[in-house]
Design a protein around this nucleic acid. Structure first.
Lengths: 345, 345
DNA sequence: GTGAAAGCGCTAACAT
DNA sequence: ATGTTAGCGCTTTCAC
């Protein structure tokens, strides 16, 4: 915890200083600042001049304490170093800022304990709402948030416990499988990303299975290329490649995983897309690089951010009072065909 | 089962509630929470039980208002979607969190106006300190922060106005040039990144010039591959490639730019590293991908984050009161040789 | 149109 | 070892 002393700051001017200098009362100053009550032009000018002269800045702590409501939202993100989440977070912060909200961002590093701790921090700071870009699935951690009436919106996260704005993950995975099946692939494996949020992984896995069914293809293996944190039972890439009939195509849980997979495949002597096709999910900027040229399912990241923020603020402002129903937005995804998919060998 | 309406936020328990339930005074509760004064075991147990029963969480707003000091730091970052900054920010948030500080992250999108606005937000929230991962160079914007005695530390930013923890950028660029010169290159251009913070760009440019001098090489062009936001006078890639003697090697301002450059070079029919070598700066995770295999200058990102945070908190805690001298840490960088550099054609 | 007064929830002297 | 008290800087009735 932070420890004591202070340095010699010139004490910041307070609303009382402004009142004194402009020769009016605190309330009048507050009125011109917030437009909360009428005031004369002359008063306004005097107050504004005093504010300027003193370099006055309202103290958000005092304001929020008194109002019993902050203009700050909290964001829980699993991994900021994944460009998809970096970009998503950036956009969220931008939209929130435009609406007058500050953003406290917490990276949980994928850890559940960390997620709980960070939510606690947000609670202590009395955030007006929480955006979950990662959710461990532990309901007890968010029960306290909801008990306080603090709205939660999942962004790129699916859960029946709170409002969600997500891409149509199942559809995306079906699109991926269909594309591969059209190309003639019959053994299409799924490669989950350990970093992806569990509910999202499930939706994509489901879409993959559905896609396989619709194409009349047999169930192919789920392949791990990273140390599984959650412990999902899967085959490892090495074992899969050594098998008599290795998959000819892979649907990856996200672009990062797809890129990693391509690395491992090529290191093992499998050409992509010559010997195996790979398709990602997200369409991060890097996927468009010629050397990578990753075929992938594009998420509408801008809409995700915009609608996530606006839904949260709607609830924060109580605009939907009475309407108790949970909103579940599914945004359309899009197949971006590039160079990592081709007909099977 | 009758349920209370959704909107009824059960008002949060306050320290007074805890005091009432446990039969002691507010101060005693505060004492057991903060350990600020001795108390009996029995009292502690009663208070803790009450806290638990009521689901009490201290209100950080009230605490900070009263203490006139928050446990929150602000971070100004230029582009969270660049994985280098995503990772750096993630690490910063982690170290700050461990020290008991919450982090308000502001992405300025590279804009100067935005930088000023965001600093204003941080000021209103009375952050204990500010970490600048991007600095426009506009001193007036930070004058107000310093006037309040709020410490500022630049991370991966160089400025003589505040403490700085940065990589040895000039050295990095010299290393890059030396590597290229060793390989036999004689026309080594520099490709600045528009997103990189100006002082950093300058340091790297300086290193590039020094490297050229030391190797006895002629000044090569500075090449733009993006629309220059700042207006630095440079040649464009097209013009440079059309010239009779195009560069055989390029030192890029960061990895993102290097990767972009490779794309453009290859699109124009120049093989990398066959016809032209490219070297980046940062060593983001993607640089290690086989298909990219980018030779680059690695920044010690973990140290950058750790030392930036610890220096800031030192100043916040006033641990170095009296010592007025500015700290300028230069962390060592390292050449990571991969596959985008080779002898000239 | 403006001001006085009562807190928001907490900490930190200072009492006891 | 515990309680009393006086604010921190602001908003918000409610008078005038």
């Amino acid at each position: 915890m932070p420890r004591s002393p202070r340095r010699s700051h010139r004490r910041r001017a307070t609303i009382v200083d402004v009142a004194r200098v402009s020769g009016v009362s605190k309330s009048t100053v507050a009125n011109v600042i917030n437009g909360s009550a009428p005031f004369s032009d002359e008063t306004r000018d005097r107050v504004l001049a005093a504010i300027d002269e003193l370099g006055y800045r309202p103290n958000a702590l005092a304001r929020d304490l008194k109002r019993r409501r902050t203009a700050t939202i909290g964001v829980i993100v699993g991994d900021l170093s994944n460009p998809f989440f970096g970009e998503l977070t950036r956009l969220i912060e931008r939209y929130a800022g435009r609406a007058g909200y500050a953003t406290i961002i917490c990276d949980t590093d994928g850890g559940d304990a960390s997620e709980r701790d960070k939510l606690g921090v947000l609670l202590e700071h009395r955030v007006a709402g929480v955006l979950l870009l990662k959710f461990s699935g532990d309901k007890t951690q968010i029960a306290e948030v909801e008990r306080d009436g603090i709205p939660i919106v999942g962004v790129s996260v699916l859960d029946r416990g709170f409002d969600c704005v997500a891409s149509d993950d199942a559809k995306g995975a079906r699109l991926a499988v269909a594309h591969l099946a059209d190309l003639g692939h019959e053994r299409i494996a799924y490669v989950p990303s350990v970093d992806t949020e569990p509910s999202t992984t499930n939706a994509r896995l489901r879409g993959w299975k559905q896609g396989l069914e619709r194409a009349g293809l047999p169930r192919a293996p789920v392949v791990a290329i990273e140390a599984p944190r959650g412990g999902r039972r899967v085959s490892t890439l090495g074992a899969v490649l050594d098998a008599p009939d290795p998959p000819t195509a892979y649907v990856a849980g996200n672009d990062l995983t797809a890129l990693d997979l391509i690395d491992q495949l090529e290191s093992a002597g499998f050409g992509v897309p010559k010997d195996a096709s790979v398709i990602g999910f997200d369409d991060i900027a890097f996927a468009g690089l010629r050397r990578l040229s990753l075929t992938t399912i594009r998420q509408p990241i801008g809409d995700l951010a915009k609608r996530g923020v606006s839904r949260l603020l709607e609830r924060v402002d109580g605009a939907d009072e009475g309407e108790a129903s949970l909103v579940r937005v599914r945004l359309p995804v899009e197949l971006i065909e590039r160079g990592t998919t081709a007909p099977p060998p």
